[in-house]
Amino acid sequence: MTRELIGMIFILLGIMFDFFGVLGLVRLPDVYNRLQAATKCVTFGSAGILFGVFIIQGFNNFGFKVILGIVFIFLTSPVSAHAISRAAHRSKIPLAKESVVDQYQEDNELKD
């Protein structure tokens, strides 16, 4: 009973962070900021949901599948964020107008 309660608390926390991440995806001004908010919050939130399910289920085969899912999400989501942001910068999508500095652009111009 207490195990289910702790698991439900983890699931609730995870869904809350998911919601904040998606809100950031809608509200923030350009691709890079959206990628920041969405990647961090949604990764942590989904990992929280999966960890809550693992606590409720215990060590059966459902539990092991969920653990595999957590490891997989933590390994892959930063990599795809990295790939998308680099591709966006190389295809010349500009930063938002609030931006202060862009040292990547400066170095690329020096090279050309």
Partner: peptide
Amino acid sequence: PTAADRIVAVDIMGILIVGLLAILGL
């Protein structure tokens, strides 16, 4: 507004669906 925004959104939706399927299995 740009293509990169759509790619980010599709990527994020994949991770959300994984959480949904875990709860559905529960």
